[in-house]
């Protein structure tokens, strides 16, 4: 018997595609009722003839934290990387359907990639600071955007480091090499560097998988602080992490979006058997 509160499914335009939408009664969430900042409509992504993401329709709401979970090779990273076209350099790929950020189609020919990636920042699995000073790492983006004033750049550095909760740790070492920082600090510096271009979406691809539990906890705290101001999409293999940090969770399997719902609902009473089997470790 399917619970009454199961995800409402709505037919989209033509074809048989259905769009899993998050339950509308999530009054407890600050983002309830806010518009979608990322909107996929029957979006598919192909590597040659192999389908990496298959016919996914989902809206990601402004200011929310959305976790994408699923077994290896299920398309979660491909979907995440599609949002700011990180897959462009892979030869022989193509997309179908639409994927929009702030209402603009990401894969439209007229899309300005630089603008897109300013709006949609990304943090990777392994911290990848530039081999420069902490200060230079953060001002790199704003400089490219044409900010020259030293005072403004300094203010930006302080703001970004404060926002990424590491100002107090590094304020006296701004001109030391970023590579001298610990792994956890480097990852937070990467987040700070991303914040410097004033994005409204942050994509995180397993941001804690190379970090110890304490550094992981700091990144998770940081996600909680950034929530509301930024829309965060996080891919993680750590189910407890998905449950802890996210408002909504999407479960992908074999390139398809199987279930997308409020995190508390999905982890206590998932609507789909496949989701339940995956999160309880019965397969995958």
């Amino acid at each position: 018997m399917e619970p009454k509160s199961a995800v409402p499914l709505k037919k989209t335009g033509a074809g048989n595609a259905v769009r899993p939408q998050v339950a509308a009664d999530s009054a407890a969430y600050v983002d309830s009722g806010k518009p979608a900042v990322i909107s996929a409509e029957r979006f598919s992504f192909f590597y040659g003839s192999k389908c990496g993401v298959n016919n996914v329709s989902m809206d990601i709401r402004t200011g929310s934290v959305t976790a994408i979970i699923g077994p290896s090779g299920c398309g979660k990273s491909t979907f995440l990387r599609s949002i700011n076209r990180m897959n462009d350099l892979i030869p022989n790929t193509r997309t179908e359907g639409t994927l929009a950020v702030n209402g603009c189609d990401v894969y439209d020919k007229r899309t300005n990639l630089i603008n897109l990636r300013q709006q949609v920042g990304m943090v990777f699995q392994k911290p990848n600071p530039f081999a420069k000073t902490i200060f230079e790492n953060i001002v790199y983006g704003p400089r490219l955007q044409g900010v020259r004033s030293k005072r403004r750049l300094s203010e930006m550095v302080e703001k970004c480091l404060r926002d990424s909760a590491m100002w107090d740790e590094v304020k006296d070492d701004l001109h030391k090499s970023a590579l001298a920082l610990s792994g956890g600090q480097q990852q937070r510096l990467c987040i700070a560097r991303t914040l410097a271009t004033k994005p409204n979406v942050l994509l995180m691809d397993e941001p804690c998988s190379a970090l110890d539990p304490i550094a992981t906890a700091r990144i998770e705290d940081l996600i909680a602080q950034l929530k509301g101001t930024y829309t965060i999409v996080i891919v993680t293999h750590n189910m407890q992490q998905a449950a802890r940090v996210s408002d909504y969770t999407a479960f992908f399997c074999l390139g398809e979006l199987i279930e997308y719902d409020r995190t508390d609902k999905l982890f206590t009473n998932p609507a789909k058997k496949a989701t339940e089997d995956y999160i309880t470790g019965r397969f995958g």
């Binding site: 189910m239 982890f267 206590t268 009473n269 998932p270 999160i279």
Partner: peptide, 9 residues
């Protein structure tokens, strides 16, 4: 074990 879903219930 931090059980979820049916195990948690």
């Amino acid at each position: 074990h931090q059980p979820v879903a049916i195990d948690l219930r």
